[in-house]
């Protein structure tokens, strides 16, 4: 019987990072109708910028991390501000494809500017560890687990209790009606773009610290689990997205303990998303027939 204990902590931390980006994806989609595929690249730009500010320009760590998160928000906001309106009435697939184009632009820039050098970004929280006979956890992993849950709760409260949040929900329901009701559509959307960008920035920093600073990996390969989680939540439900992200992280990590299937563990997000999407599709058809 494999010893799953170390893999549980590792999996929950990984799942937490997926959840963070998943929350950003859901909030943005609900507000703007855009399934954002450049969230990983934005996180990568942020983490590489933080690395450069710390290692090349001697910035204070926390200041550099703040700059990285802010950069994530600003990049996402700029995209939404300039390209959001022209794409507003287009098919969701077109909007998603456009965001993929921006991801490829960012990827090209990163590979040109930062090249393939070896880098490491250590969050100060990784120095603080708690060890007992059962498990070992550092505070970056702890943050990875707790932060997304807190973010999801804050987001739910924000959407339900604040004026901007209510406006965002109105936009999600019907953009034209919301505009007729006098809701400042562009301003509200700007908040959604910026807020989700901030989450992508935080997610990028955690991913860079917990997993890797490889540019292509940060931009595409690793964040794909967040997309899978968001899709399982039907890009609508924050609790389901967060839960799906944790479950994906947990299963993916636990499979690593079983030598016979360990090499297939990276397919977990894909398989989970495909199963759920096929189920939704099947259920939709069934309901259609019943109707």
């Amino acid at each position: 019987m494999p010893d799953f204990k170390p893999f549980i902590v590792i999996g929950l931390a990984l799942g937490g990072v997926y959840a963070m980006s998943g929350v950003g994806l859901v909030v943005l989609y609900r507000t703007t109708g855009v399934l954002n595929l450049f969230y990983g690249a934005v996180g990568a730009v942020g983490s590489l910028t933080a690395w450069e500010l710390i290692n090349e320009h001697g910035w204070n760590n926390w200041l550099a991390f703040a700059a990285a998160v802010l950069l994530g928000g600003v990049l996402t906001l700029l995209y939404g501000w300039f390209l959001g309106p022209p794409l507003a009435d287009r098919d969701p697939l077109v909007k998603a494809s456009a965001s993929l184009g921006f991801a490829l632009i960012l990827l090209g820039f990163m590979q040109w500017y930062w090249t393939a050098d070896v880098r490491s970004l250590k969050l100060p929280t990784s120095d603080w560890q708690y060890v007992n006979g059962w498990f070992r956890i550092n505070w970056t992993q702890g943050l990875g687990m707790l932060f997304p849950i807190a973010i999801a709760l804050i987001t739910v409260v924000f959407l339900n209790q604040t004026k901007v949040g209510t406006a965002m929900r109105a936009l999600a329901d019907n953009r034209d009606n919301a505009a007729l009701l006098g809701i400042p559509v562009r301003k509200v959307e700007a908040w959604a773009w910026f807020g989700s960008g901030v989450l992508f920035g935080v997610g990028g920093l955690l991913l860079a610290s917990l997993v890797s600073m490889e540019i292509a990996a940060l931009s595409f390969t690793l964040p794909i689990a967040a997309l899978a989680a968001a899709l399982i939540g039907r890009v609508n439900s924050l609790p389901v997205t967060v839960m799906a992200a944790f479950v994906i992280g947990l299963i993916q990590s636990s499979l690593g303990a079983m030598q016979s299937v360990a090499q297939y563990r990276n397919t977990t997000p894909f398989i989970a998303a495909i199963i759920v999407l096929l189920y939704f599709g099947w259920r939709g058809q069934t309901e259609g027939r019943v109707a």
Binding site: L107, F220, T221, I224, L231, V235, F270, L277, G288, A291
Partner: peptide, 28 residues
């Protein structure tokens, strides 16, 4: 409405596949 929803999920599935292929091709 149901057909539209089903179509959307098919598109999302397609999107996931495309994104996965890009991610795979970008892997070191």
């Amino acid at each position: 409405g149901t057909t539209g929803s089903s179509s959307l999920w098919k598109k999302l599935l397609l999107l996931l596949a495309v994104f996965s292929l890009i991610a795979a091709s970008c892997g070191s």
